[in-house]
């Protein structure tokens, strides 16, 4: 029921009271509608809703397009040279903190602490930006100093403070994982704008050409020699064919000898790496 208002009015309703100094809209009709709404809801703020003119698209001008693109990336670079890796999975979202090549400080503990501190400060923003909800597990880099741990947790808490969605840091596990939850309001940005990868069905991994070559061999052997077959045609992805011709050439030769029929290879441009067909001709 909270979702009834169209986005522009909903955001006015939720944010106007929080000190919005300016609302820029690139559509005159929408601007009029928002002004009318603001007049009704909080009259003093109606004048702050302005029309964006000018030739440059509003989201380009303010760098929002880039922000959206970045918010869909898996890696989030940190200023110190470290980075976060954000993965939204079925059961939970995981955030891994890495130092990268950051060696700005003399000792390891100090480097770790600085990176974790920066990560903690950035995580709150990433959760909001990406609208990630549910269970969130953060794998900070191991810290041995108790006071460092406390400071990193405090930084995390601080970074969550400006968030309208309620979140709760549940615990710091014995392995140093921070368990937290953030109230799920609506779909995450990733789920709104993206779909699972069509090649790997969202797994993130596909079988290697080598694995597929061996599958092809097994499949050919399973079929066995066929009396009427004059030749076997193997259709596969370019990487797989290339491997059959080079690294697997000897094995392919043995297979030909075993079957007693020629094997023809053909690159099929539309196949994924893990797709192949074997045809008798």
């Amino acid at each position: 029921m909270h979702e009834d208002l169209p986005l522009p009015l909903r955001i006015l309703r939720d944010e106007l009271s929080r000190g919005v100094v300016r609302v820029l809209v690139d559509c005159a009709a929408e601007q009029a509608r928002m002004s009318a709404f603001a007049t009704e809801f909080a009259p003093a703020t109606a004048a702050r809703i302005e029309l964006h003119g000018g030739p440059r698209p509003i989201f380009d001008l303010h760098g929002i397009e880039e922000e959206i693109a970045r918010a869909l990336e898996r890696q989030v670079p940190l200023k110190s040279g470290g980075h976060l890796v954000v993965d939204q999975r079925e059961a939970m979202t995981t955030i891994d903190v890495n130092t990268g090549g950051y060696v700005g400080h003399r000792n390891l503990e100090e480097t770790t602490f600085r990176t974790n501190l920066e990560a903690a400060a950035g995580i709150g923003r990433q959760l909001r930006l990406r609208n990630l909800g549910g269970i969130i597990i953060i794998d900070f880099i191991d810290m041995h100093d108790e006071s460092h741990r406390r400071q990193v947790l405090a930084a995390l808490e601080h970074s969550l403070a400006g968030d309208r969605a309620h979140s709760r840091i549940v615990s710091l596990s014995p392995l140093g994982l921070v368990e937290m939850t953030r109230k799920r309001t609506r779909e995450s940005l990733e789920h709104l704008l993206c779909e699972p990868c069509r090649s790997c069905a969202g797994r993130g991994f596909v079988r290697t050409p080598e694995t597929v070559c061996h599958e092809i061999f097994r499949e050919v052997l399973r079929q066995g020699p066929h009396p009427s077959a004059r030749e076997l045609l193997i259709l596969a992805h370019a990487d797989v064919i290339e491997r059959l011709l080079e690294a697997e050439a000897a094995a392919l030769g043995e297979l030909k000898a075993q079957l007693g029929v020629p094997i023809r290879l053909q690159v099929e441009g539309l196949y994924g790496v893990d797709q192949f067909d074997i045809v008798r001709a």
Binding site: P8, I11, V20, I64
Partner: peptide, 21 residues
């Protein structure tokens, strides 16, 4: 805190960005 809201409207999609400081 300074808050700005940017709204981009196209016929089938509306996008909004909340910019703080």
């Amino acid at each position: 805190m300074t808050v700005e809201i940017l709204v981009n409207v196209t016929p089938a999609e509306t996008r909004a960005a909340l910019v703080e400081e």
